[in-house]
């Protein structure tokens, strides 16, 4: 099944599915609405628990407002639900961590994740937030694959890794933001040193 054909339905664009299965309605933080099958939702531990707790009937799903997912935008949520629909019914992998992890990225997932790094970043966040184990696995694998054959200098660019100096500066800035007086004290100390004072006090 291609990415384009994945059965996520935007309410305003597509017809309501004819199947009798229950389709839940979700709304992204930019007010995009999606219908997602009950089976697809099982891929997300977070959403699965949520809908179980709500105990909606078919009528509730239609009559009550869509379930809001506050911190994920429509573009990202569409990818998430496309993935869930494509992989619905599949077992959720369990990893005991005792052997080196070998994650294969299926063709569908590879196409789905053929996106810019900004959107990939949001997709990973969403997979984590919604606790979709296998989507998190494949998206992290995509990020890990970026390291293949890269030197440390190239890795710094690929993963936007700050240098030690940048880390130090960021740490200082964070400390100062927490305690504005610290900066004043440091400046005063530097000024006294310039003036040749031996003691700060």
């Amino acid at each position: 099944m291609s990415v384009e054909n994945a059965p996520v339905v935007d309410v305003d664009e597509a017809a309501i599915p004819v199947e009798k299965k229950m389709y839940y309605r979700f709304e992204s933080n930019d007010k995009k609405e999606f219908r997602v099958s009950e089976l697809a939702i099982q891929q997300s531990e977070t959403l699965n628990r949520l809908v179980e707790a709500m105990g909606y009937t078919s009528e509730d799903v239609e009559n009550k407002p869509a379930i809001a997912i506050e911190n994920i935008d429509g573009k990202t949520l569409k990818l998430v639900f496309q993935w869930c629909e494509h992989h619905k019914g599949e077992a959720i992998p369990v990893d005991d961590g005792s052997v080196p992890k070998i994650v294969e990225i299926p063709e569908f997932d590879a196409k789905l994740m053929d996106i810019d790094n900004g959107l990939l970043f949001k997709l990973i966040w969403a997979a984590d937030y919604l606790n979709i184990v296998q989507l998190l696995n494949v998206s992290c694998k995509k990020v890990a694959n970026m390291a293949q054959g890269k030197t440390p200098a190239q890795l710094r660019r690929v993963y936007l890794l700050p240098s030690d100096e940048e880390d130090e500066a960021a740490k200082r800035a964070a400390q100062e933001a927490q305690d504005p007086r610290a900066r004043e004290v440091e400046e005063e100390f530097e000024e006294r040193k310039r003036q040749g004072g031996n003691s700060f006090f």
């Binding site: 990939l120 970043f121 966040w125 970026m146 993963y159 936007l160």
Partner: peptide, 11 residues
Amino acid sequence: GLPVFSLPQLI
């Protein structure tokens, strides 16, 4: 690039 240190620690 993709800023991995901006991701949550579990990710």
